[in-house]
């Protein structure tokens, strides 16, 4: 009996050692980067690293006064919201079609939509660059909106489809015998019933859009279309080199809202990340 108890407390000790070590590994760089954002420029790159810096809001003032931070923020928000709206408007009917009807070629269409998730941005980067150049959309948030929507279309469709498959058919059948049209059933019964799934899909799409780097780098060439993700790479000031405290603050400005919404949808996260393949 005693040996059982000892091995149990030992295994608990190992458990918390492993989990605690990984938590430290996760958080240490984050906390240190936060300290970079809150220290003066002169204490960032020094012959010896400074572990206990003086507190300073230099970077906060700099990003708003010397750099068009408000513009970066506005571009990010508009491009992301626009792209998520496009995704939902196109993907919800598509998911409804894929989950509720039997027809020829359905599974191939579904797989085609899924397979666009595998396309490396670099593969289509050059043609898309020429496409937007010919359309006169380079360096606009419209181009970013269209690209982000395309990147996330597969994810949103498959997540929403997975939640729709969970809805029992009887729910619609009752409404159908009352004479409701298919579109009305989608709007009045299905969408309210899978609202958590739609929100999950929107949050996942939002994260991918905030993170997007390669396309944004190619499309945006002036602050008119820089998003926060690409603006980071432009916080350099000639002889000043990379302006790390500004970069750190912008990183945290983008992080906080994402963290808040992700904690809110925590329960659905594993399902969203696997595009509905597992139900967590």
């Amino acid at each position: 009996m005693a040996s059982v108890r000892r091995s149990r407390s030992e295994s608990l000790f190992i458990r918390y050692l492993v989990l605690g070590a990984w938590a430290l590994f996760c958080l240490a760089p984050v906390l240190w980067f936060l300290s970079i954002g809150l220290r003066p420029r002169t204490e960032i790159i020094t012959p010896q690293p400074i572990y206990f810096p003086t507190f300073s809001l230099d970077a906060w003032h700099m990003i708003w006064e010397d750099w068009p931070m408000a513009k970066y923020l506005r571009n990010s928000v508009l491009a992301i919201i626009g792209s998520v709206v496009i995704d939902l408007v196109l993907a919800i009917p598509a998911a409804y079609s894929l989950s509720r009807y039997e027809y020829r070629g359905r599974d191939d269409i579904g797989f085609y939509i899924l397979s666009t998730r595998m396309m490396a941005p670099a593969i289509v980067a050059i043609p898309i660059f020429f496409l937007f150049r010919n359309m006169g959309l380079l360096d606009t948030i419209w181009a970013l909106m269209l690209v982000y929507a395309a990147i996330n279309m597969s994810v949103v469709t498959w997540i929403v489809r997975s939640y729709m498959l969970d809805i029992p058919k009887e729910l619609e059948d009752a409404a159908r015998t009352d004479g409701a049209s298919d579109l009305r059933i989608l709007w009045e019964i299905i969408i309210p019933a899978i609202l958590p799934g739609i929100i999950t899909a929107a949050v996942i799409a939002m994260i991918f859009a905030i993170n997007e780097f390669l396309f944004t780098l190619l499309i945006a060439s002036t602050p008119d279309a820089y998003t926060m993700s690409v603006a980071l790479a432009n916080f350099t000031g000639g002889s000043d080199g990379v302006i790390y405290n500004a970069i750190a603050l912008v990183a945290f400005i983008a992080f906080v809202p994402v963290f808040v919404v992700v904690v809110a949808i925590q329960k659905h996260l594993s399902r969203g990340l696997t595009m509905g393949a597992i139900k967590g």
Partner: peptide, 11 residues
């Protein structure tokens, strides 16, 4: 554990 994943890759 989620926290690192929520930073932008460029950050």
């Amino acid at each position: 554990f989620l926290i690192p994943m929520l930073f932008m890759p460029s950050a």
